[in-house]
Design a protein around this nucleic acid. Structure first.
Lengths: 290, 290
DNA sequence: TTGCCCTGTATCGGGTTTGTACAGGCTTCG
DNA sequence: CGAAGCCTGTACAAACCCGATACAGGGCAA
């Protein structure tokens, strides 16, 4: 349940306009606190967002409202909306980074994370935006320092979410990390957050973990599974080395590869290849535990 | 069991506010001594920390409280192994890392950060503990993966503090980062946090920043100063390269070196060498601005 | 063109929420 | 014993939210 300000941030509709739409078209019926404050649920946010989308596509407000009221399914849990000007959601992050404007970076992240729950936004908005940062750097559009600035901010957000996940202390333990020489860890960390939010105790090892360290971690911890990130095609050989060493050291360990290039490793024995999207990957792995 | 002040330090919630939350939302029910003093347990600390996290992410206090009350599993207890008297404060962190026990790692960090304000503990406890981690790794006492696990947790704490610092938006801007090929960024990040808490807008570039990126960042941002971390003696040559390039590109920029090995660079022109302790270093740099 | 409706936005007076501070008195600890 | 810490209760300012109203600009019909 969100206050009107939070609902405004999540729906992209201004506070004044939300009240106007409610009064004129009864497009939402938020609950009220005992003192009369509006409290919006996810369905209300979806309706507001759907209505905004229709209006941006040229509909009049009244038509949009009746469409939303008539087709409640049209206001499904879709989250991914292009910005008003049609630019992809991560563009604001890239341009903020290019100008070394940390406030704008944080604002862009507020916008991305504010559009829904972690699970709703991470695969659709946040990681694509981070990927755009990498592309912008690769294409020379922004500098390494600018890329660091912005991806560091993303990393901090994810870190806060990781810590906020809280330890169940009793759940299964899973090692998560990247193979040697692999450095882009945002996806792995996001996966760790998603897994932790499913009640799994994640031992997050980070980037560039040597093969022997994987083995030692598996031997010295009570981990039930290990997930090795495979971000680029270059990570495939070291990742398969890690898997082979882990398999030899701990035959009982559930092994999985995750990440964009994990598909390149499907040939290897009994190693699970997780879906590319971190939320689905976390659910898939969770299903293999216990 | 902690007194209210200890609980405040560990949870990051002020004493007044803890009482207000208890009175208004009944989010905790601390035991009482016979004379009425509150006594908090680890579960209470976790609840307060969770509520604080939700509020920092935009929830209203009342919504956050009901979420914490409704979802008690999110706040699991954390047990800290009693460390033998006389052992240095960071020993618990190292032994927790050695056992890949993330709960114990978080508990050790709770203990370290709980002993005082950021300024009080960072130089005395947290960074020495992080240094002990590095030494334990160098001496073969713990593995790289264990070191990653624990220093990642420290990094996340510092990241949260960095984000909590908030942007003044109007303060002077300072670039903070490490020279090329330098990777141990905990000290630089801690310095960034300290600086931010003094009202300076820190543009944190992170580790391993190429010379050209320093130059571009200085050129494209409105930074008044740049601080280059010099962690080990090996960082001295690249750091001096960065300084020379920055001096050439932006003669007006205030340049400073920070970190344990910054002293090795005292010979270079008008570059300030900051004290080794981050709090003093931040104050020293602050004095040179505006 | 004129006048009217639609629609997004701004403002006003008044109530609510929330973080912080203070006063006066009791407890703990060195 | 004195300083520091903690208690309850109260107060307060800033931020937030409420309903109501006003208003500007665009579209549209007369």
């Amino acid at each position: 349940m969100y206050t009107i300000k939070q609902a405004s941030l999540r729906s992209g509709v201004s506070v004044s306009l939300m009240r106007a739409w409610e009064r004129r078209y009864a497009v939402v019926h938020p609950d009220r606190t005992s003192s009369g404050y509006r409290l919006y649920d996810d369905d209300g946010i979806s309706r507001l967002r759907a209505m905004r989308g229709l209006i941006e596509h040229g509909w009049s407000a009244r038509q949009a409202a009746s469409a939303v009221l008539e087709h409640p399914s049209a206001a499904g849990p879709r989250v991914l909306d292009a910005s008003p000007d049609g630019s992809p959601p991560g563009a604001a992050l890239v341009s903020a980074a290019a100008q070394y404007d940390l406030a704008a970076v944080e604002g862009a992240l507020d916008d991305l994370f504010g559009r829904g729950s972690f699970e709703a936004v991470i695969d659709e908005l946040v990681l694509p935006a981070a990927a755009m940062l990498g592309q912008a750097w690769a294409s020379g559009q922004i500098d390494v320092a600018a890329e660091h600035l912005a991806s560091g901010a993303v990393f901090r957000r994810l870190s806060a979410l990781f810590d906020m996940g809280g330890l169940s202390g009793s759940g299964p333990q899973v090692l998560v990390g990247l193979p040697p020489d692999s450095r882009h860890e945002l996806g792995a960390l996001a996966f760790g957050v998603a897994l932790r939010r499913l009640g799994v105790d994640v031992l997050y090892l980070g980037a560039d973990v040597p093969v022997e360290s994987w083995v030692d971690a598996a031997a010295d911890s009570a981990a039930q599974a290990a997930v090795v990130g495979v971000v680029t095609a270059r990570d495939i050989p070291p990742a398969s080395e890690v898997a082979a060493a882990l398999r030899a050291a701990r035959p009982d360990l559930v092994l999985a590869f995750g990440g964009a290039s994990a598909g390149g490793l499907s040939a290897i024995g009994d190693v699970t290849v997780l879906p590319a999207r971190v939320v689905e990957a976390a659910r898939a792995l969770r299903g293999r535990l216990r």
